[in-house]
Simulated assay, not measured.
Amino acid sequence: MIIRIMGEGQVKLSDSHLPELNKLDDELLAEMENGDGPGFRATLHALLEKVRDMGEPLPDDSLEPSELILPSPDATLEEVRELLSDDGLIPG
């Protein structure tokens, strides 16, 4: 799976990591619904860090289609809400 982190680039990540990422995505969604700004920020950073750690960065000149787009680390609650689907940021 190819994941784009807005403002950073793309990362290739095995689908086997999705359950771990979904746990963080569920936490992020709950924090957004509860208006927990500090919790939201910490979980967003943890989610992006997991993607970076578990994935393999693609070269900057690579133009692979992204299957998933994640917000930048400095995205606001409102910006992330615009990216959400019924499943959160990460489907499944």
Score class of each variant (00 low, 15 high):
39 G>Q: 09
33 E>S: 12
57 P>F: 09
73 P>G: 09
30 A>Y: 09
79 E>V: 05
40 F>C: 01
79 E>Q: 12
57 P>Y: 06
38 P>K: 10
81 R>W: 06
21 L>K: 11
49 E>C: 00
65 P>W: 07
18 L>Q: 13
81 R>Y: 11
19 P>Y: 10
54 M>P: 00
16 S>W: 09
15 D>Q: 13
51 V>W: 01
19 P>N: 12
77 L>G: 00
54 M>Y: 12
71 P>D: 04
44 L>I: 06
20 E>M: 14
76 T>R: 11
20 E>P: 01
15 D>V: 12
22 N>T: 13
88 G>A: 06
58 L>D: 03
25 D>S: 13
21 L>A: 13
70 L>D: 02
72 S>K: 11
68 L>W: 03
21 L>H: 14
12 K>P: 00
79 E>Y: 03
11 V>P: 00
2 I>R: 15
88 G>M: 09
61 D>W: 07
72 S>T: 05
70 L>S: 04
55 G>W: 07
48 L>A: 02
85 S>Y: 02
8 E>K: 15
24 L>Q: 08
9 G>Q: 14
46 A>Y: 01
88 G>S: 07
7 G>W: 06
91 P>M: 06
30 A>G: 05
66 S>M: 06
58 L>V: 00
42 A>H: 14
64 E>P: 01
73 P>H: 04
57 P>N: 08
22 N>W: 10
31 E>N: 13
43 T>R: 13
62 S>W: 04
73 P>L: 01
18 L>R: 14
28 L>M: 08
26 D>R: 15
13 L>V: 15
4 R>V: 10
82 E>L: 04
58 L>M: 09
32 M>Q: 10
14 S>W: 10
59 P>V: 08
8 E>C: 08
66 S>E: 11
25 D>R: 15
58 L>H: 02
40 F>L: 05
44 L>D: 05
40 F>D: 01
41 R>F: 05
68 L>H: 07
72 S>H: 11
35 G>Q: 09
16 S>A: 14
76 T>S: 15
27 E>P: 01
19 P>D: 06
24 L>P: 01
28 L>A: 01
54 M>C: 03
79 E>S: 05
54 M>V: 06
18 L>I: 13
86 D>T: 11
72 S>Y: 04
12 K>R: 15
79 E>F: 01
38 P>Y: 11
17 H>S: 11
47 L>G: 02
43 T>M: 00
62 S>Y: 04
61 D>V: 04
76 T>L: 03
13 L>I: 15
85 S>R: 12
68 L>Q: 08
38 P>V: 07
64 E>K: 12
85 S>D: 05
9 G>I: 14
73 P>D: 04
9 G>A: 13
37 G>H: 12
53 D>M: 08
44 L>N: 03
44 L>A: 03
5 I>L: 11
41 R>N: 07
8 E>N: 10
58 L>T: 01
54 M>W: 14
41 R>I: 03
18 L>E: 08
73 P>E: 09
87 D>L: 09
7 G>A: 13
92 G>A: 06
87 D>R: 12
18 L>C: 02
81 R>S: 04
15 D>M: 06
79 E>R: 12
76 T>D: 02
13 L>R: 03
50 K>M: 11
